[in-house]
Amino acid sequence: MSNKVIHALYNDDDILMDAVKTVKAADHHIDEVFTPFPVHGLDKAMGLAPTKIAITAFLYGITGLSFAIWMTNYMMIEDWPQDIGGKPNFSWFTNMPAFVPILFELTIFFAAHLMVITFYMRSRIWPFKSAENPDVRTTDDHFLMEISIHDNEKELKSLLKETGAVEIKVIENK
């Protein structure tokens, strides 16, 4: 396992995109790219798999809907049925039209919150987490590409220089 990485900084998203494509074409593995804003198409160029987070939202939504059905049925039909405004309370289904707003809101509630929590957990962001971007300029106007070195420092350096990097640094990981 190598413990040396190279950091190449760029100051333009288009130059970065071309650089990512060049580096990929030269068969190097890009460990990470830090950018100040979403650069469209970067994930595809880097070869990242599409995110499945939308699917989790769908599943969470179904969970919320099921919970709402269970809750309205248990509270309004089974546990303590009441005659409210003559609305039928013999079965959940006959009383269901009055529950539609609740079913809808809980579906959204579960889908939205659990999806966001999933996002935070998967991307490892939460309160008191310390930032991991190696250079503070990557939240301003710089783009940083991180590649690990496997006895090819010179070759990488010259390749990155050609792609238009404004700064190239070699970092020793301890």
């Binding site: 990470e32 790219v33 830090f34 950018t35 100040p36 804003f37 979403p38 650069v39 970067l42 994930d43 880097m46 990242l48 599409p50 995110t51 987070i53 996002f119 935070y120 998967r122 991307s123 490892r124 962001i125 939460w126 309160p127 008191f128 987490k129 310390s130 930032a131 991991e132 971007n133 990557t138 939240t139």
Partner: peptide, 14 residues
């Protein structure tokens, strides 16, 4: 900021 670092994967999910 919850330790936001701006990784490509983070942005994709974001």
């Amino acid at each position: 900021s919850f330790g936001w670092s701006g990784r490509a994967k983070d942005w994709q999910r974001f």
